[in-house]
């Protein structure tokens, strides 16, 4: 039996929610960390957002509909939390959501203390991704790095599959066209 199925079964019984949550935490902490990290870039910010995402998951376990995928629900919460975090910060600095100067600075100043260590190709790809508009960036991350299908991404982002395909191809084109 897959872990996701075990968690879903536990969620059917409210008295088992604590056990279900512990399994969710154990099973998905790393995946959610890197999902959020690719959006907010900085480790400390990721830590804050990830903790808030797990608290939200804990508070909303009863709202999870058993007929949908658990991980798409979790990814949705993680993505929403990360975007909300960025929006709040950008609102205070009056920066558009499609511009990421502060994230670019964090990436470019990458060092061992900032826990960024990649080869030239990985760094170049991240910089190109950061130059994408918000929606394309999210779709690209979910498709390229998380290897999710368009149907799964549609569930996470509430967007039509056609729109997602268009966004993904536009994102790829921009990345390949960037220096």
């Amino acid at each position: 039996m897959k872990t996701e199925d075990i968690i879903k079964q536990l969620l059917l019984d409210k008295s088992q929610h604590e056990a279900a949550f512990q399994l969710i935490l154990k099973e998905y902490k790393e995946r959610l960390y890197f999902l959020i990290r690719k959006i907010v870039i900085d480790h400390d910010d990721t830590d804050d957002v990830l903790q808030e995402a797990f608290i939200k998951i804990w508070r909303n376990l009863e709202k999870f509909r058993g007929d949908s995928n658990l991980y798409t629900w979790l990814y949705r919460i993680g993505t929403n939390e990360a975007l909300t975090f960025l929006r709040r910060r950008k609102d205070t600095r009056n920066i558009s959501m499609d511009e990421n100067p502060e994230l670019m600075n964090m990436l470019e100043s990458g060092s061992s203390t900032s826990h960024i260590s990649g080869n030239d190709i990985e760094m170049a790809l991240q910089k190109a991704v950061l130059e994408l508009p918000e929606k394309q960036r999210i779709v690209f991350n979910l498709k390229y790095f998380e290897h999710l299908s368009y149907d799964e991404i549609a569930e996470i982002t509430d967007t039509s599959v056609g729109g997602l395909k268009a966004n993904y191809h536009a994102a790829k084109k921009k990345i390949l066209g960037s220096d």
Partner: peptide, 29 residues
């Protein structure tokens, strides 16, 4: 062909971070 390589990402988590995370989150819940 650049993207066909399956390029990874450069992000890392500090050592022991995920163990501490579990403790912190469970304490909050």
């Amino acid at each position: 062909t650049f993207l066909e390589l399956g390029v990874g990402h450069p992000y890392q988590a500090p050592n022991g971070y995920f163990e501490q995370l579990e403790t912190k989150v469970l304490a909050r819940t």
